[in-house]
Design a binder for these strands. Structure first.
Length: 184
DNA sequence: GCGGTGATAGAT
DNA sequence: TCTATCACCGCC
């Protein structure tokens, strides 16, 4: 029997979003539910660098929605979009408005729903706005260590064409060749 | 390629 | 109050 996975320390998140986005690849997303624990391997992420990043939710300063991003690192920032989808981010940096979006996860638990895409990750792991602001070192939703990263691909972020030059920055990271990545 | 769906933020 | 917009997904 393998030992129970343990949450990554706060220090992992207290670095710039780009570094954390790269290093989150291969880490384990863990949801401890009633009688069942869901585990997935993070295979795709995007870094959102802070208020100077026009594609970032904090680009226009602090609001009620993005307030969590200006809080301590290692907490969940969950938002609701398009009237039906949730997206899960982890707050990084130093209380300065950075986060990393979890875009895709490879299921390691039998029976897990499709997890290629940020909204599907949330659906499969039952992540909603109820999780917004939660400490990812808590026992219900957390990220645990994983084996050394494989070959990493860098691409432009998805769905941020409105952000001008920032849309072209290579701030999306995924595990090369992994079939669960949301798009190539 | 297009539209569902409702919260959000800025304009009025 | 009003309205444009949206870090998506499923179906055409």
């Amino acid at each position: 029997m393998r030992p129970a996975p343990r949450p990554l320390p706060r220090s992992f998140y207290a670095r710039d979003a780009e570094t954390v986005a790269r290093e989150l690849l291969n880490k384990r997303l863990v949801r401890v539910g009633r009688g069942k624990t869901l585990v997935g391997r993070i295979v795709e992420t995007e870094a959102y660098l802070g208020p100077h990043d026009r594609a970032c939710h904090t680009a226009r300063g602090k609001t009620a929605r993005n307030a969590v991003m200006f809080g301590p690192p290692g907490h969940a920032y969950v938002y609701f979009v398009y009237g039906m989808h949730h997206c899960l981010n982890v707050v990084t940096g130093y209380g300065d408005g950075q986060a990393v979006l979890i875009r895709a996860v490879e299921p390691l638990t039998d029976g897990l729903e499709k997890t290629n895409g940020p909204a599907r990750v949330c659906k499969a792991f039952h992540v909603t706005r109820n999780d917004n602001g939660d400490d990812l070192r808590g026992s219900e939703l957390f990220i645990a260590d994983g084996p050394a990263p494989e070959r990493i691909v860098r691409r432009a972020r998805v769905g941020v064409d409105y952000a001008g030059a920032w849309a072209k920055r290579l701030l999306r990271f995924y595990v090369r060749g992994n079939p669960w990545v949301s798009r190539r």
